[in-house]
């Protein structure tokens, strides 16, 4: 779980239900995308609904995994394991940096 000490421009929440393979995949994909496009200006909070089920109501979570972009506003939601990078970028409203990065390339190793 990566938390940054100072306030970040990008505040992201990843809702999962148990540490399933899909949840792990989603988290890895998310970290990779963030490092690539939002390095230093994002924070990810992971909410496991099996541990805190009541939180599903607040962000109107139906599907898991769901990534919620809480900041910058407006709130946006991306559902799925985030394996489709293009769609995640569109969903987060991030302009892809050039065409050298594709979802096929592995950046999974570049965790903080």
């Amino acid at each position: 779980m990566s938390r940054h000490p100072r306030a970040k421009e990008w505040e992201l929440r990843l809702y999962i239900a148990g540490k399933t393979q899909r949840a792990v995949t989603a988290f890895e994909n998310l970290q990779r995308i963030c490092e690539e496009h939002l390095a230093g200006s994002y924070q990810i909070e992971i909410i496991d609904l099996l541990e805190t089920p009541k939180l599903a109501k607040g962000d109107q979570i139906v599907a898991v995994p769901t990534l919620v972009r809480r900041l910058p506003e407006p709130v946006r939601k991306i559902i799925g394991d985030l394996s489709n990078t293009e769609r995640v970028l569109v969903g987060l409203d991030i302009r892809p940096r050039g065409r050298t990065v594709t979802s096929g390339e592995s950046h999974a190793g570049s965790h903080e």
């Binding site: 809702y15 239900a17 148990g18 899909r22 995949t25 989603a26 994909n29 609904l49 099996l50 089920p53 599903a56 109501k57 109107q60 979570i61 139906v62 599907a63 898991v64 995994p65 769901t66 709130v75 946006r76 939601k77 991306i78 559902i79 799925g80 394991d81 985030l82 394996s83 489709n84 990078t85 769609r87 995640v88 569109v90 969903g91």
Partner: peptide, 22 residues
């Protein structure tokens, strides 16, 4: 349960466990 299509982007596999939990 509010589901707003315009707010939701799909990017990969998912299930409805969130609804079950609720």
């Amino acid at each position: 349960v509010r589901i707003e299509r315009s707010e939701i982007q799909e990017a990969g596999d998912y299930d409805l466990e969130g609804l079950f939990v609720r």
